[in-house]
Amino acid sequence: MTRHYTARAAVRAELGAGGRTRLATLRSDGPYALRAAPDAVYLVGAAAGPLGGDELHLRLDVAAGAALAVRSVASALLLPGDGESGAHVRAAVGPGGHLDLAFEPAVAAAGSHHRSVTEIALADGATLRWREELVLGRHGEPPGRYTARVDVTHGGDPVLRHELRLPDRTLQASGAVLGGARCTGSVLLVGPGLAKEAHAAEGLAVMPLAGPGVLVTALAADSAALRRRLVHGESLARAAVDTAENTPAGTGQTPAVRFS
């Protein structure tokens, strides 16, 4: 039988001397191997998967005024195994802090059964960039079962509660849900100075939320097209920041993460 992992990795970023962010904690565990690079903390796949039965937890803390970017070096191939696999990300961002969390796509291989849970609590004045991309099946294979939920709050108020439930191919094929697209993804920006007007094109919507954020949602036939749409959508979501009095507070740029 497959060996299951239960991994608990963690990163804590704090504001260090000279206004630079320093990593107070960088804890790898099992398949979650973390590496600090000048621009971001990278998740390095130390094992294939997750496989069914794996439970992976990543805890991210960004202290007041600090900025943290988290990336992965490659897409995550979700594989079948012994039951459901789970990936849990819990993040807390303090006042004036910024989190930029953007992994490479998850690929739901045939027979996989994965559940992703992301909870991001932003303090008042904290900002966020979060990206999620999903590819349903490797080339030419039917996808596995996949659900993902993200809950983002700002100062305790809900900004976005968003769940993708794909228990079977019916919903992927439905014109209301994915319309047959093999790839779907979102970018969420939270912070001041973002677009106030919605935008839509084929396979793309840029949607100002009721709260202080904009969600970019895209559908595409392949992951390259998905990325192009999300990049385009993200640039539109930031389009409102061009005026002088409307300076982006952290969401405008990928933050430089410097480690001392």
Partner: peptide, 12 residues
């Protein structure tokens, strides 16, 4: 909070 990306895009 089940979402429907296509419905969101269509709505806009």
């Amino acid at each position: 909070a089940a979402s429907a990306p296509a419905l969101d895009i269509f709505a806009e």
